[in-house]
Computed example of a mutant assay.
Amino acid sequence: MSPDLLTDDEDCHLPLLFGRLLDGKGGARLIQWEEAQGWQPGHEGEVLWLHLLRTHAGVQEWLEDSLGLPEPTAELLTGDATRPRAFREGQTLVATLRGINFNPGAAPEDMLSLQLWSDGHRVVTLRRAPLQTPRLVANDLDAGEGPEDAGALITALTEHLIDRMSHAIVDMNAVIDELEDDTTPNDPDELLDKIVTIRRNCLALKRHMSPQHEALTAIANGAPGWFEDHDRREIAESIARLRRYLDDLDISKESAVVLQDDIRARAAANTQRTQYVLAVVAGVFLPLTFITGLLGINVGDIPLAEQGSHGFWIIVGLCGAILAVEVLLLRRLKWF
Results as ranks from 00 to 15, higher is better:
residue 212 Q to V: 02
residue 143 A to P: 08
residue 176 I to S: 00
residue 183 T to P: 04
residue 192 L to W: 06
residue 193 D to C: 10
residue 184 T to E: 13
residue 199 R to W: 05
residue 168 A to D: 00
residue 180 E to P: 01
residue 160 H to C: 08
residue 138 A to R: 15
residue 185 P to T: 05
residue 183 T to A: 11
residue 205 L to G: 00
residue 170 V to Q: 10
residue 140 D to G: 10
residue 209 M to R: 08
residue 181 D to W: 06
residue 197 T to R: 15
residue 180 E to H: 07
residue 178 E to L: 07
residue 214 E to P: 05
residue 130 P to R: 10
residue 164 R to F: 08
residue 153 L to K: 03
residue 169 I to E: 00
residue 185 P to L: 02
residue 212 Q to D: 01
residue 146 G to E: 01
residue 204 A to R: 01
residue 130 P to I: 04
residue 142 D to T: 15
residue 155 T to Q: 06
residue 202 C to E: 01
residue 198 I to V: 11
residue 163 D to M: 08
residue 151 G to D: 03
residue 171 D to G: 07
residue 148 E to D: 13
residue 189 D to C: 07
residue 141 L to D: 02
residue 163 D to T: 13
residue 173 N to K: 08
residue 160 H to A: 13
residue 182 D to Y: 03
residue 163 D to C: 09
residue 185 P to V: 04
residue 140 D to N: 13
residue 179 L to E: 05
residue 157 L to F: 05
residue 162 I to H: 01
residue 199 R to V: 06
residue 137 V to R: 04
residue 208 H to D: 09
residue 194 K to L: 13
residue 140 D to V: 10
residue 214 E to Y: 06
residue 168 A to R: 00
residue 181 D to T: 06
residue 165 M to Y: 14
residue 178 E to D: 12
residue 192 L to F: 05
residue 214 E to R: 11
residue 155 T to W: 02
residue 145 E to T: 15
residue 133 T to S: 11
residue 205 L to I: 00
residue 141 L to C: 06
residue 209 M to L: 15
residue 214 E to M: 08
residue 210 S to R: 13
residue 192 L to P: 04
residue 141 L to F: 04
residue 176 I to V: 03
residue 170 V to L: 10
residue 209 M to C: 10
residue 165 M to L: 14
residue 174 A to H: 09
residue 169 I to M: 02
residue 145 E to A: 15
residue 155 T to E: 05
residue 158 T to V: 11
residue 130 P to T: 01
residue 189 D to M: 10
residue 176 I to K: 00
residue 190 E to Q: 14
residue 142 D to I: 12
residue 184 T to P: 07
residue 159 E to C: 10
residue 136 L to Q: 12
residue 139 N to D: 08
residue 171 D to Y: 10
residue 207 R to K: 11
residue 137 V to F: 06
residue 203 L to W: 08
residue 162 I to S: 01
residue 181 D to Y: 05
residue 207 R to P: 00
residue 141 L to Y: 04
residue 152 A to L: 12
residue 160 H to L: 09
residue 193 D to G: 11
residue 179 L to F: 03
residue 142 D to E: 14
residue 135 R to N: 05
residue 160 H to P: 02
residue 191 L to S: 13
residue 181 D to I: 04
residue 205 L to M: 01
residue 199 R to T: 05
residue 194 K to C: 11
residue 199 R to I: 03
residue 135 R to A: 07
residue 135 R to L: 14
residue 136 L to A: 12
residue 166 S to N: 10
residue 149 D to N: 14
residue 164 R to P: 02
residue 189 D to E: 14
residue 214 E to V: 11
